[in-house]
């Protein structure tokens, strides 16, 4: 059994977390040449309602495609924080939207709060690229996929005419996360 790297992206329907997971998994599997699975759970609503997207990345075969021991948790709503902070192992890194997740992340966890959605809205100009801003930040913080592969994966998935916007979102996310290099992530 090879080491698995488990990512959970949690928020609400309409935040683009399923697509975010697909892009992250494609960066890992198609462009970085590893194995990856992406799966999700969702409610009957297309917007609102809980949404969860999980990505498993491994050099080896991935049997169970769902997360069992999270390495990286992205929280995009308060409801997601309430639901998923409970069973996060202490080794995990938690990244939360600064404005949308007012809850304090427990001190025992490594965590970072970034105004992901605000950056998408104000700096990039479109709130709907918050998922791509988040991916830029997650890449910078973990290096779980290479930036080049992530860029290719974004370009392969986003609608025609939005390439510039999405690449900008990726850089804005990367930039926002840059102040925390691996060692500086507060406990």
């Amino acid at each position: 059994m090879s080491k698995r790297y488990e990512v959970r992206l949690a928020g609400s329907g309409g935040q683009g977390l399923v697509l975010g997971g697909v892009i992250l998994a494609e960066a890992a599997s198609i462009f970085d040449g590893k194995n990856a699975t992406q799966s999700q759970s969702y409610g009957p609503e297309s917007r609102g309602g809980a949404s969860k997207s999980e990505v498993i990345i491994s050099e080896g075969e991935i049997d169970y495609p769902k997360a069992t021991h999270i390495d990286l948790l992205l929280l995009m709503t308060e409801a997601a924080a309430e639901k998923y902070l409970k069973d996060v192992p202490e080794t995990a890194l938690v990244v939360a939207d600064l404005d949308l997740v007012p809850t304090a992340i427990p001190d025992k966890l490594r965590s970072v709060k970034i105004p992901i959605t605000r950056l998408a809205r104000e700096t990039v100009g479109k709130e709907f690229v918050a998922n791509i801003v988040a991916l830029g930040a997650l890449q910078e913080l973990t290096g779980i996929v290479s930036f080049e592969s992530l860029k290719k994966a974004v370009l392969a998935r986003v609608p025609k005419g939005t390439e510039e916007l999405n690449l900008k979102a990726l850089s804005v996310g990367q930039e926002a996360a840059r102040e925390y290099d691996g060692k500086n992530i507060p406990h």
């Binding site: 599997s29 194995n35 699975t37 992406q38 799966s39 769902k66």
Partner: peptide
């Protein structure tokens, strides 16, 4: 549903 919605290479 897992097999139907899961994605992999």
């Amino acid at each position: 549903e897992i097999t139907a919605h899961m994605r992999e290479k």
